[in-house]
Amino acid sequence: MTLDDLRVFVAVCEARNLSAVARTLSCSQSAVSQHVRRLERETGLTLLERRRRGVAPTQAGEILRRAAAQGLAGLDDALRRLDDLRSGVAGTIRVATGATTVRHFMGAGVTTFRARHPEVNLQFVTADSSRRCLEAVRSHDADLAWVTVGPPLDGVEQRTSYELPWVLAVRADDPLGRRDTVTPAELAGIRHIELPERSTSRVHLEMHLERHGVRLTSTTSVADWDTALLLAELGVGQAVLPALPGWGRGPGVVRLVPISGLPPLGAGWAARQWDALTPLALEFADTVVTELNRSGVPR
């Protein structure tokens, strides 16, 4: 059993087609089959089921695929770091981010870190949800991810760095915009601009509103918090959002009215194992949090 055997086997399981993998690897289909047969001889089990259109892993094959994929991802990560050492590069930090992460949370931290370490390669992996950011970390596609802290995910550690209070975003000329605070009960009649379905922030909000007997109805939905704020500014409706850094500083068309009685939303870093991160990755994570502290964002 060799690394090449495992790499080819994982590729076949993902593509579900021997000839497709052969084309990708620029080799013959029989060469791909030999890798699979060698694994089957060593395990003593059938790993692939031949179907009319391609192949699929058997139960035994799926067990091997999962283990091999996880191990190969970690090995590829290690080889990448060794390549950095060999080529003299100071290091690479891969950060999974959502649409609003860098703008609202990382700007000052990235600037400070870059000034301190201009030779470090910073790679930002864009993902459209916290869940996908966590998956990028778990699959070794990212070292760190800034996420909305949610339910535990096997293979990933999450740390809350900030607690963001919930606010109602309304136009200043809206009657609710003249209030100092609003209660959850007063949200029942708003023209709600809803957050992305199954997003961590929406699940958190709906769960705690239900405890107050409130269920919001909506005819408008958005993919991110910034768009919800913009639509509230345009008067399309009102949005219930976490108070992000940089929002509500100075006069404007939109007012952010604090909502009493709702637990804040946690945000912070995620990694596979904190004690396995490189010193540079740890420094980057600490720098981002330090700069946010300086900006006066509530913890």
Rank of each mutant, 00 (worst) to 15 (best):
R37M: 14
D76E: 13
A115P: 00
R81D: 14
A56Q: 12
R81V: 07
R53N: 05
L39H: 00
D84H: 08
A96V: 07
R132C: 02
G74Q: 10
L18V: 05
L122P: 12
G74A: 15
D141E: 10
A108T: 10
R37H: 06
D143P: 06
R131I: 11
V156D: 11
G150W: 05
R51G: 07
L48Q: 09
T148K: 14
V32C: 09
T101N: 04
V147K: 11
V102Y: 03
P152F: 08
G44L: 04
D154Y: 01
D84V: 00
A20H: 02
L75K: 04
H35P: 00
A108K: 11
R52Q: 04
T97L: 15
D141G: 12
T24M: 12
P151Y: 06
R114G: 06
T46A: 07
A99G: 00
S139R: 05
T24A: 13
L25P: 00
G150S: 14
E62N: 03
F105W: 04
V137N: 10
L18F: 11
S26C: 09
A67M: 12
R38T: 05
F105C: 11
A22I: 13
R16V: 01
E40L: 03
N121S: 12
A145M: 14
L75A: 12
T97V: 13
E40A: 10
S139L: 13
R41Y: 03
H140Y: 14
G61P: 09
D154M: 15
S30Q: 01
L82F: 09
R159G: 00
L47D: 06
V149E: 15
G155K: 04
R80S: 12
L64I: 05
A127L: 09
G71I: 00
A96S: 10
L39F: 02
C133L: 13
A108E: 12
L134W: 00
D84T: 01
L79A: 12
V95A: 15
A20Y: 01
E40W: 00
R94I: 04
A22V: 10
R51K: 09
A68T: 02
P118M: 15
R132K: 14
R116T: 09
S139G: 09
C27R: 15
A136D: 05
R37N: 11
F105K: 00
T92M: 08
T111K: 14
V21Y: 04
P57A: 15
A31E: 02
Q123E: 13
L39A: 13
D143I: 04
